[in-house]
Design a protein around this nucleic acid. Structure first.
Length: 633
RNA sequence: GGGCAUGUGGCGUAAUUUGGAUAGCGCAUCGGGCUUCGGACCCGAGGGUUGCGGGUUCAAAUCCCGUCAUGCCCGCCA
């Protein structure tokens, strides 16, 4: 079922189209033109408005006002629209508040926690990968953007009817891990006991990075890296074991942020499964790659940039002719490995992984699986749609993967591959490098753990000073929930393509335009319902006769929840949701500030129903952001 | 050299994909509001030539062209 706002718009379009076509036959307009001419307008101009008359006026050489008046004559009231009006060329609709409100509220009562959900995705299997952090350091405030974007988008897509699989890729064969293996051997692991393992590794990593300047160290690390890649060596086992311990520590953090996954795929397992060979064979067979003659590229397997420059402008490069995929020493580049992995993601190569349970029960109750040497077969991968949450600096690599998919005959998959490119998080204009240890600070580290701890402490202070909750139990839980809402909101309210300069001040702001603000409005709604001993059966008695402007503003916003969720899913933008939540909660706040609910006399029941509906709309949208609303705070 | 992203009041941002009525919101500043359902609140004021210059249009933050600034990417690094 589409949202009521959508239905009202549809009724408007139908009336408008018929009327306009009767009066202005020559206009040659499509239904889509009428549809696009309609906007949600500010209250003074009615509920929905169309600028169609301007367009027709031009063709007919008449004034928009005149045209609109002609169209208006043929427009008749509909189920949801009480009347149409005209003002300075715009055609406005006025909703039938009784019919509209009744329908919205009954739908919410019927659907409750599913209100706003839809079947947009038609159950399509969608694989979403995040955060793919190197298993060499703690998650910091930069990684958090990836983590929260991924988790939130996964929630949103699931709510919109996609069948979502949350996957994380772990590169346990990277140079960074090799450096840590070297560090383990040469610098020891004496500090490991009294620290969280990822924190210990992160610090060790900075140490190793300093040692890199010494003679011979680089070579030693390269040797280690080669042994790791061979598999079945001491170095390989050590790298996997270090990586696993690190990932488990990182996931402890993720769990505190209420972020969960379905499956981890390890680079060492991708290598063991020989996906790469199969991918190379495929690329050769389809003629997607060539072996350049030029001296510079002798012995490599490469992508001919001329062949792909139509696929993406990224490949327009006057200086380079080829993009190397397999080096002359036989080692694959990142892009090629990634292409192989994507063949698996789309089910274009058969799933040769075995899976074991790395965490039997995450805090959300679900098992976390992991690719492994031994284990059972499972139906992971084989997705129709693939979404990668990756920093925008990797756009070029992602385009290469896409191009390879297209060239190997999977144009469908190529177009179903989405790179959600987000800009980095900086601190005081500097990016968060693991190598130099920017995340380490003498006062507060910029790790995700530190951020949550600081924010929770601030929240707890506030909770304890609040009279409402003082003397009550679980202040820790409440403080944590509030802290989470603050952090998640702060990260998600900004469009993904804009860079974020991290600031403690903003992270710790719980006032308006924040997660806690929305949570507060939710809690107040609950509190009112509790005080009124509200039950749904009371709704029988509600009277839709008097819906004032404050009330109807809230109802209209509630009616748009599904459109908002779908927009957010289609555009991969959680900030569509945060924006809506701020609008809804502040409109709701203004409504109850000016309108007594419990002492509302004849309006009491309808207002209770509005509070009830707004509460569900807020709660459902908050959950899409990964924020579980709390009853009181 | 080529490509990508960003540029909106002092600060942080929304709206740009699909052009519409007065560019929305928060922080900060100033002024109001608790004997009234929770003050993490509400109401109001000041603050904007949407980087700049052209163009298209009845209408441009939005589309087109140019230009400036900032950051990033374009390795047989991973």
């Amino acid at each position: 079922m589409p949202s009521l706002m959508y239905l009202a718009k549809e009724e408007f379009v139908t009336q408008l189209e018929n009327a306009a076509k009767t009066e202005f036959e020559e206009a040659r307009l499509e239904r889509i033109d009428f549809w696009n001419s309609i906007n949600v307008s500010s209250q003074e101009f009615g509920d929905l408005s169309s600028s169609m008359a301007f367009r027709i006026a031009k063709q007919y050489g008449k004034s928009p006002h005149e045209v609109a008046q002609h169209i208006l004559r043929h427009m008749k009231r509909t189920q949801l629209i009480k009347e149409f009006t005209e003002s300075s060329g715009y055609l406005n609709s006025v909703f039938d508040r009784v019919a509209y409100s009744k329908s919205v509220i009954e739908t919410v009562i019927d659907e409750k926690e599913f209100y706003g959900s839809s079947n947009l995705g038609k159950g399509e299997k969608t694989l979403i990968e995040y955060p793919a952090v190197n298993p060499t350091k703690p998650l910091h405030v930069g990684h958090l953007r990836n983590l929260l974007l991924g988790d939130s988008l996964a929630n949103i897509l699931a709510f919109c009817g996609y069948s979502v699989e949350r996957e994380d890729y772990i590169d346990d064969l990277g140079l960074q891990v090799a450096e840590l293996v070297w560090g383990h051997i040469h610098l020891g692991s004496k500090n490991a006991q009294n620290k969280k393992y990822d924190q210990f590794l992160g610090e060790l990593y900075v140490e190793v990075n300093k040692a890199l300047e010494k003679d011979g160290v680089k070579e030693e690390i390269e040797t280690i890296l080669k042994k790791m890649e061979q598999g079945n060596t001491d170095e390989a086992r050590l790298s996997r074991s270090i990586s696993e311990k690190c990932v488990l520590a990182q996931y402890e953090t993720a769990f505190n942020y209420k972020v969960y996954h379905n499956v981890l795929i390890w680079e060492s397992d991708i290598v063991a499964a020989k996906l790469l060979g199969a991918a190379v064979d495929l690329a050769k067979a389809k003629g997607a790659v060539i072996t350049p003659e030029e001296e510079k590229y002798k012995g490599t397997l490469a992508l001919d940039l001329k062949q792909v420059k139509d696929i993406s402008k990224e490949f327009e490069n006057p200086e380079e002719r080829y993009k190397v995929l397999i080096r002359s020493n036989g080692v694959a580049t990142y892009a090629m490995k990634d292409f192989a992995f994507h063949l698996w993601k789309f089910g274009l190569l058969k799933d040769s992984f075995s899976y074991s349970q790395i965490i039997q029960k995450q805090p959300n109750g679900a098992c976390l699986y992991s690719s492994s040497k031994s284990g059972e077969k499972r139906g992971f991968g084989n997705a129709k749609k693939v979404i990668n949450i990756i920093d925008m600096r990797q756009s070029h690599e992602q385009s290469t993967v896409k191009a390879l998919l297209k060239l190997t005959g999977s144009a469908d998959s190529a177009s179903n591959l989405t790179h959600v490119a987000y800009a980095i998080v900086e601190i005081g204009g500097k990016d968060l490098s693991g190598r130099s240890g920017t995340w380490l600070s003498s006062e507060k580290n910029y790790t995700a753990d530190d951020l949550l701890r600081e924010t929770t402490a601030k929240a707890k202070e506030k909770v304890e000073s609040s009279k409402k909750i003082s003397g009550k139990k679980n202040t820790d839980e409440v403080a944590k929930a509030i802290a989470l809402s603050a952090i998640r909101f702060e990260y998600l309210r900004v469009g993904p393509e804009k860079k974020i300069d991290f600031s403690w001040e903003r992270a710790l702001n719980f006032e308006a335009n924040s997660g806690p603000y929305v949570m507060y409005m939710y809690a107040r709604a609950r509190s009112i319902l509790g005080k009124a001993a509200y039950e749904e059966t009371q709704l029988e008695a509600r009277d839709y006769g008097f819906i004032n402007n404050d009330e109807f503003k809230v109802i209209k916003l509630i009616s748009m929840a599904q459109d908002i969720a779908e927009k957010s899913a289609n555009e991969y933008r959680p900030n569509v949701i945060t924006d809506y939540l701020l609008d809804l909660s502040s409109t709701f706040s203004a409504f109850y500030e000016r309108n007594q609910v419990i002492k509302g006399g004849e309006s009491k029941n309808i207002r209770l129903a509005i509070v009830y509906s707004a509460m569900h709309a807020m709660g459902n949208m908050l959950r899409l952001l990964g924020v579980e609303p709390i009853e009181s705070m």
